[in-house]
């Protein structure tokens, strides 16, 4: 388990955790570009953004928030289970649950995307907007798809990684002494969750 460049297990663990935190800092800056664009246009196009936001399905968005927060709980429980040395099946079960909740989120998101497609709310040549402020509404939907799309890509990657970690957990790879991959996967998962916690009010709850 100990790689050749490290002196001991704690150095390896601390390096892995710090590496993930630094990576998450880059992710914040990556999303940050879109959040900056959102802030600039929300300030310029407040009325159009509010009107466009009303066409989002708040119920589905709220449901997705609940799904994702629950998945963070099961993820945290999985990490805790590894720390206290629960059975492999226990850890893997919690991870599979996390993964299924992640898939549920993506499924609901797909329903919403389909809905927008049917109603011609996808920006571009086919965009149709009943009412004034068409450009502003289109900008809103551009940012909506860019931000939730980038988030969904991160969810997809997360589901894939959790799957791998779940398989390794089922094989009994993680012990209270060594569970670095599980721990840093957890950090990533919570990060993606938090991004959504910001996206939901910014996109769905504009008065």
């Amino acid at each position: 388990m100990l790689r050749h460049q490290f002196e001991d297990a704690s150095q390896q663990r601390e390096s892995a955790v710090l590496g993930m935190w630094v990576f998450l800092a880059t992710e914040i800056m990556f999303f940050g570009g879109l959040f900056a664009a959102y802030t600039a246009y929300r300030y310029q196009y407040g009325a159009g953004f509010a009107a466009a936001s009303h066409h989002l399905n708040m119920l589905l968005g709220a449901a997705n928030t609940a799904v994702l927060l629950t998945s963070s709980l099961t993820m945290a429980l999985a990490v805790h289970a590894a720390q206290v040395g629960k059975k492999p099946a226990h850890i893997a079960g919690l991870l599979v649950l996390t993964m299924l909740l992640g898939c549920a989120f993506l499924g609901i998101k797909a329903v919403e995307y389909h809905d927008k497609f049917v109603h011609h709310l996808v920006p571009g040549a086919s965009f149709v907007w009943e009412g004034t402020l068409t450009r502003q509404a289109e900008m809103f939907y551009y940012l909506y798809f860019a931000m939730t799309g980038l988030h969904a890509i991160h969810m997809l990657a997360g589901v894939g990684v959790v799957l791998v970690v779940a398989i390794l957990a089922a094989r009994g790879r993680y012990t209270p002494q060594y569970h670095n991959p599980l721990e840093i996967t957890g950090l990533y998962w919570h990060f993606v969750d938090i991004i959504w916690v910001f996206l939901f009010p910014l996109l769905y709850l504009i008065a």
Partner: peptide
């Protein structure tokens, strides 16, 4: 690590 992601998204 803090600057490069911004040019990437841009």
């Amino acid at each position: 690590v803090l600057g490069t992601p911004v040019i990437a998204i841009t």
